[in-house]
Amino acid sequence: MILSDLLGRDVLDGTGAKVGKVTDARFVLDGLPASEASLAQARLYGFLVNPRFHRASYLGYERRGLTAPWPIGRLERWWSRGTFLVLWEDVAGIGDDGVRLRPGYTRRSPVLP
């Protein structure tokens, strides 16, 4: 599976209703490194989902607390409003219809730590 297979996929809640599309995938470097000279393994932490904007986002103003330069920053924030993060634990399955979430999943803040 390559990342492009996931980007832009529909995201469905427990009842099968569409809640948005995958705009990005968050990873965390917390696995064991393969060797001393390698980076830690990157584990899929969750998906960024946006209810409206249906394309992969290359700017990410909303996730990093950036606003400058005005008005590009403002526009991009407005454009990507409503983006939320769902954790891997809340993913029930990935199939042809899209990414299915577990009932009672949590919408988290998309801001990067």
Binding site: L3, D24, F27, P33, A40, Y58, R63
Partner: peptide, 17 residues
């Protein structure tokens, strides 16, 4: 080199770099 639990977004931080 490890990564120390750093978090990153794939499209934002890896793709096209």
């Amino acid at each position: 080199m490890t990564g120390g639990g750093k978090t990153f977004d794939a499209v934002l931080h890896i793709l096209d770099r």
